[in-house]
Amino acid sequence: MPRNLTTIGFDADDTLWQNERFFHITQERFTELLADHADPRHLAERLLEAERRNIGHYGFGIKGFVLSMIETALEVTGNRVPGEVISELIRAGQEMLAHPIELLPHAQAAVESAAADYRVLLITKGDLLDQERKLAQSGLGDLFDGVEIVSDKTRRVYEGIFDRHGDGAGRGMMVGNSMKSDVVPMIDAGGWGVFVPGQLSWALEHAEAPEESPRFREISDLSRLPEIFEAAG
Rank of each mutant, 00 (worst) to 15 (best):
P197G: 02
K180D: 00
G146R: 11
S201Y: 05
R155W: 03
G198Y: 07
S220I: 03
D152Q: 13
Q199I: 15
L129W: 02
V150A: 03
W202Y: 13
V120L: 12
E159Q: 15
L204S: 11
A114Y: 08
G193T: 06
R156V: 05
G166Q: 10
M173H: 05
D130C: 05
G160F: 02
Y118K: 08
Q199W: 10
I123V: 15
D127W: 04
I187P: 11
S151R: 13
I219A: 09
P210E: 03
G141V: 11
R215L: 03
K180H: 06
E212F: 02
G198F: 07
D145A: 03
G198R: 07
K134C: 05
P185M: 14
D117G: 02
L129Y: 03
K180S: 04
A115V: 00
E205H: 14
R171N: 12
D152T: 11
D182T: 03
E132S: 10
I149R: 01
G198Q: 08
G191M: 03
S213I: 09
A209Y: 05
P185F: 13
L128S: 12
S151N: 12
A189P: 04
E205I: 00
D130F: 13
R215K: 12
R133Q: 08
V184D: 06
P197C: 08
V196D: 04
G190L: 04
E159S: 10
S113W: 02
R156A: 13
A115H: 07
F162Y: 15
L200S: 05
E211A: 14
P197L: 07
Y118W: 10
G126R: 10
I219L: 09
I161P: 01
G139C: 08
L200Y: 14
